[in-house]
């Protein structure tokens, strides 16, 4: 099983995020309307948010289990997290952003140069993040996550902030990542079309 998740977390006085699902290999979409708590679920899997109860297992490894008192620190979970807003480090050039997580990757599957070529960002390496377009920034963010030696990928609406033309480009890229790297991917979206095109499994939420 790729993702075996059953978590609950109170986010506010009247809101609670509770979800349980288990998925097979490939890309799984977490699908639901805005505000359903999809990002919170990713946060709990990545270790950025601590669930109130439940467990998180990915590819057979337990990352969190309240009953067994397991709570692996975020830094050791090896999640390749691609945020909706790319979230590149503004004080580092593209190359340094890509390098940031590399020291965790014990057996780098790909060199930085190969990754840059794979993602079509080799001409951007010396640029500052603020000079990138939305699509370019998102591709760099995907590269940064992949170079950190992830055991699985979490993608939070990576296409939401892009215009139609850029969407197509990044979508093709995500398909290449899905088909060529063989990592379990959990992909959050509220767009039916995206989900139908990318996902093998769909988990409905909200």
């Amino acid at each position: 099983m790729s993702f075996d998740v059953d978590v609950r977390r109170r986010m506010g006085p009247n809101t609670e995020v509770a979800i349980g699902f288990a998925t097979g290999p490939g890309l799984t979409a977490l699908f639901g309307p805005s505000g359903a708590g999809k990002t919170s679920v990713l946060g709990m899997i990545a270790g950025l948010i601590r669930p109130d109860a439940g467990h998180v297992r990915v590819a057979g490894e337990t990352l969190f289990d309240l009953d067994a008192a397991i709570d692996m620190p975020c830094a050791r979970r090896a999640a390749g997290y691609v945020f909706q807003d790319a979230r590149l480090f503004p004080h580092l050039r593209v190359r340094a952003n890509l390098r940031y997580g590399q020291r965790r990757a014990t057996t780098p599957a790909m060199s930085l140069e190969a990754m840059a070529a794979f993602l079509g960002i080799d001409h951007l390496l010396d640029r500052w993040p603020r000079t990138l377009s939305g699509g370019e920034a998102q591709r760099v963010a995907i590269g940064r996550a992949l170079l950190s030696g992830p055991r699985f990928l979490l993608m939070d609406e990576p296409l939401a902030s892009l215009d139609t033309a850029r969407r197509g480009e990044v979508m093709i890229l995500i398909e290449r990542v899905r088909d060529q790297l063989g990592l379990p991917i959990l992909y959050v979206s509220h767009d039916r079309g995206e989900v139908d095109r990318l996902a093998g499994t769909v988990v409905e939420m909200g």
């Binding site: 975020c74 830094a75 950190s148 030696g149």
Partner: peptide, 9 residues
């Protein structure tokens, strides 16, 4: 948070 997901202590 992004830095932590990338393995930074």
């Amino acid at each position: 948070g992004a830095a932590r997901t990338l393995g930074a202590s």
